[in-house]
Amino acid sequence: MPATTKHAILIVDDEPDVLFSLAALLRRDFQVYTAASGSEALEVMAEHPVHVIMTDQRMPAMTGVELMQRVCAEYPQAVRIVFTGYADTRAVVDAINSGDLYRYITKPWDPDDLVDLLRDAASQHDAMAAKVELLNELGSYFEDALRVTNDAAARDSEFLQEFQARTLKLRRQLELIGEAQ
């Protein structure tokens, strides 16, 4: 994503004042969306690209883990974080086994630490997106690389310029993946 654009974060919690506090804390660094339930969260995700989703575990109707299972299936590139008031062991195991989570965090967290965590999560998203794009492009890139090597006619300056630009892009994607690891 362009460096000037904020990452989009979706916060899900059924307690309005928690959402309000988090939105106030995060809006300087991120494009913040909020939802008061799992179903509302899915509606937001259907309407807006969301890079990181962070949800409370304990909510009526749909738990955080259940929501993350849906998100994992429908929006696999969204980085998923579940938070809870305490470590309910079963919820942790369920989350890790079925929600494919980036982090499981417990309340209370320090606001500075949370911002750092979400920045890391956003970097993780960029790395995953870069990885997907890289894999999509590698096939045709190698075909073009073979043409450059074997076909003199392909070595005109326009083709080479385009090939060089693609090389730089792939290098940048590899760097993004490396930075997130």
């Binding site: 307690e15 004042d17 928690v18 506090s21 809870t84 008031g85 305490y86 417990t106 309340k107 209370p108 967290w109 320090d110 606001p111």
Partner: peptide, 8 residues
């Protein structure tokens, strides 16, 4: 825990 979060 929620109270502590709000306090933080």
């Amino acid at each position: 825990s929620g109270v502590l979060q709000r306090g933080f």
